[in-house]
């Protein structure tokens, strides 16, 4: 899928209440383009509840249900069940796609119980977590998705714990499709949404959303920071289906050795929330700890990739 083949129709209407350079609205645009008009949206309390603008107007040109923080999975299940019954009675020309759109607070911390239940029942909807790694809506408080050493209003000297990985938790539920996406790779994101649309069952897509006011960088750098996250290995792009993980786009290029893994410093220096690692003096210990984690992971992935290529050689070799 090339950029020029993307549909022209905009279901996200301009003049919304989003901040300048908002990653949430940018992600919504690509998602809507991939899923099309026949979609019913459920928005969980997050920045999206704000950026769709105050009553009585809305910037989202789709049927939207606004729900409470903890109810993402439960509402999605209910909407999927309703759509199935109505489809059985012949009320639809084409069955709509159910899209639940939640932030990282509504997924990692408050909503994970309902999401886990829905994934266990394999309810038929797409769950999207756009992950800006903090409660940006209420002024950047720490969440379960906040990375190690990042500033938030609760962790003024940097978070002491490592972030949890809900995409891996969702893979452990054994649902049919799990993917991660990045704003900087729109064709990759579009393909993942288009693929998720065709799958039946619970589908989970997580998008990293660099938030200019929360992460403290200029609004023009939203896409640049998203790209740096992939290039430095702080965010990984993959999709998981049929029990197999495939790495895609920028992450795949690093693993296959076509691109170099950039030092994590470049990503940290681009944002004000990691400034205490460099000013007033460099915090070598914490930078090295982050770099060690990522380098270790990528070395293992590059090694397994080489081994797999090697094994494939043996399989097709006529001498054996």
């Amino acid at each position: 899928m090339r950029l020029r083949d993307f549909p022209e129709e905009e279901l996200f209407l301009q003049g919304s209440a989003a901040c300048q350079g908002c990653p949430g609205s940018a992600a919504l645009r690509v998602a809507f383009k991939a899923l099309g008009r026949n979609t019913v949206l459920c928005v969980i309390a997050s920045c999206t509840s704000v950026l769709q603008s105050p009553y009585p107007v809305s910037a989202l040109n789709l049927p939207t249900l606004n729900m409470a923080f903890a109810t993402g999975g439960a509402t999605g299940s209910g909407m999927a069940a309703a759509a199935e019954r109505l489809a059985a009675r012949g009320k639809f020309r084409e069955k709509p796609t159910i899209l639940v759109w939640a932030g990282d607070g509504g997924t990692y911390d408050i909503g994970i119980q309902a999401l886990s239940g829905a994934a266990e029942r394999n309810a038929d909807f797409i769950y999207v977590c756009y992950n800006n790694e903090a409660y940006s809506n209420t002024g950047t408080q720490r969440s379960g998705a906040t990375p190690y050493a990042a500033w938030t209003t609760n962790t003024t000297k940097g978070k002491e714990e490592w972030r949890k990985d809900v995409a891996q938790i969702m893979i452990a539920h054994g649902i049919p499709y799990v993917a991660t996406a990045s704003l900087a790779y729109p064709t990759d994101m579009f393909r993942k949404f288009a693929k998720a649309k065709e799958v039946k069952g619970t589908r989970y897509i997580e998008i990293q959303a660099p938030c200019p006011p929360g992460w403290k960088f200029p609004s023009a750098h939203t896409v640049k920071v998203a790209r740096l996250a992939v290039q430095t290995g702080m965010w990984m792009l993959y999709e998981h289906e049929n029990g197999k993980t495939t790495y895609t786009a920028g992450t795949q290029r690093i693993i296959q050795g076509q691109a170099k893994l950039l030092p994590v410093e470049e990503y940290l220096k681009a944002q004000g929330r990691f400034r205490h690692l460099f000013h007033p003096e460099r915090d070598e210990e914490r930078i090295a700890a982050i770099q060690k984690r990522i380098s270790g992971l990528f070395e293992a992935l590059q090694f397994t990739h080489k081994m797999k290529e090697h094994l494939m050689d043996i399989e097709i070799s006529p001498r054996l």
């Binding site: 209407l13 003049g15 919304s16 209440a17 107007v57 809305s58």
Partner: peptide
Amino acid sequence: LTTLSVPSEGSVGLTGSW
């Protein structure tokens, strides 16, 4: 009065002034 919102461009006004 209804609780429904209506989709519209410029839902918070002309944001070009920002």
